[in-house]
Design a protein around this nucleic acid. Structure first.
Lengths: 148, 148
DNA sequence: CCCAAATAGGACAAGATTGTCCAATTGTCC
DNA sequence: GGACAATTGGACAATCTTGTCCTATTTGGG
């Protein structure tokens, strides 16, 4: 239900948050998140255009978050690469019904709203801080990683 | 976030529920739900293979629900055409983490779980029964419709 | 100034999604 | 059996998603 692109964007941003405020190159992010390098590059370009990350070319450059992890929500990342697609008007095209969705679409939109709310209330900092046996990205925490 | 196919399948099934237990032809459903006929035919084939609808050829034939609207949930329809894609194992491929999702994927899966729960608890009968100014499918209720 | 590191972006390709069209098949009714 | 009504399924096409590769362009450091 979530596209690959969203999955990749979230992985990348979580990794950047873990390393913040240091810049990470696309190659570094790709290795850490197991996302195809060349495609990740496109995804990051999108995040950059959306203002979620900042890119710096040249030696010592790379990608950085434009906000502190505590101020960046999952929702912002998702919407940057592929808006959630809330249902605002009748998909059947009956303009007359405009905002008043029928029971079916009201429920579909409610479902989207709960996802939106959950994502809006989760910051990257929370994800990193959560005590768990499985650190973000299902790997050893980057800070603790020894090899690779 | 929901695919066209899911949208179409739900529209079709809601319409069938509204007309239950009468059979409706693909053309009738397509007209009522504003879905491209030829494509709807494929979607209905899928629903038929999944056992959600029953198809009957020949004169007087068409599509019918295999269950009463009160017993058919939105989730069953969605899963029939395109499973919701709950995250059961680490997408990074670290088999070691298996069921234990990292905080990121745990939250993504939680979001999917809320959608799943909402869809599982809504039957087609409820959608039809809901008092509203905008009857299902954002049209006048099929039963009340005069022309077209 | 020149080199090396890094992103930016265009071209391309495979596969999935969405959509169309047509022939074949199945079924009902006379 | 014949005519008609309906689904079934195959072939095809357009578009989007995902992915690769290669060439520019920018940037910092000697």
């Amino acid at each position: 239900m979530f596209s690959q692109t969203v999955e990749y964007a979230l992985r990348a941003v979580v990794h950047l948050a873990a390393e913040a405020p240091s810049a990470r190159t696309t190659d570094q992010i790709a290795d850490a998140t197991r996302v195809p390098k060349a495609y990740l590059s496109k995804v990051l370009q999108g995040l950059s255009r959306a203002g979620v990350v900042h890119s710096q070319r040249g030696i010592g450059g790379g990608m950085t978050l434009t906000k502190a992890p505590a101020d960046l929500t999952i929702l912002e990342v998702v919407n940057a690469v592929e808006p959630l697609g809330r249902i605002r008007t009748c998909p059947l095209g009956l303009a007359a019904h405009g905002v008043r969705l029928c029971p079916l679409h009201k429920r579909m939109d409610n479902a989207l709203a709960t996802v939106e709310a959950a994502f809006a209330s989760t910051t990257l900092a929370e994800i990193l801080a959560e005590p768990t046996d499985s650190p973000p990205l299902c790997e050893n925490s980057p800070k603790l990683r020894v090899r690779r």
